[in-house]
């Protein structure tokens, strides 16, 4: 092998870069961390759990449009029940931001812009 020093240095740099997740995980020892969602205080959500799991971001986006752009602050759920459209008033009256929202969002590195306007102290 020619230029042994340079080649081995290059291979070592490549291996360090490619195994970055492995040693980063080892350094932080967070491999088995799973989001722990706290059960909500209320009895029922606006829509079913499976619907909310998939579409909560779409629902909140729709709510934002209804209130801010159309001036309509009542949401009629699929079962006909009416809800006051309010993130802090309705959603956060049952769910806790730190123990519910942030659990998955932090875990997945999701960047959202709810809290740039809404008070996040709930």
């Amino acid at each position: 092998m020619y230029d042994k020093g340079k080649i081995i240095a290059g291979i070592v740099i490549f291996l360090i870069l490619i195994t970055f997740p492995i040693w980063y995980l080892t350094a932080h020892s967070q491999t088995s961390h799973v989001p722990q969602l706290q059960a909500a205080a209320g009895n029922e959500c606006v829509e079913s759990t499976s619907y909310m799991l998939d579409n909560h971001m779409k629902l909140l986006d729709e709510w934002r449009t209804l209130v801010v752009r159309d001036g309509n602050d009542t949401y009629v759920a699929s079962n006909g029940q009416e809800w006051n459209i309010s993130l802090t008033g309705t959603c956060l009256s049952c769910h806790n931001k730190a123990e519910f929202c942030d659990q998955c969002h932090t875990y997945e590195g999701v960047t959202l812009n709810c809290w740039s306007c809404h008070f996040a102290g709930y």
């Binding site: 970055f20 997740p21 980063y24 995980l25 932080h28 967070q30 875990y107």
Partner: peptide
């Protein structure tokens, strides 16, 4: 994609 491979997610990925 590192956000799915490491925990905690590094600031530069965000």
């Amino acid at each position: 994609h590192l956000r799915l491979f490491v925990e905690p997610v590094p600031a530069f990925v965000i």
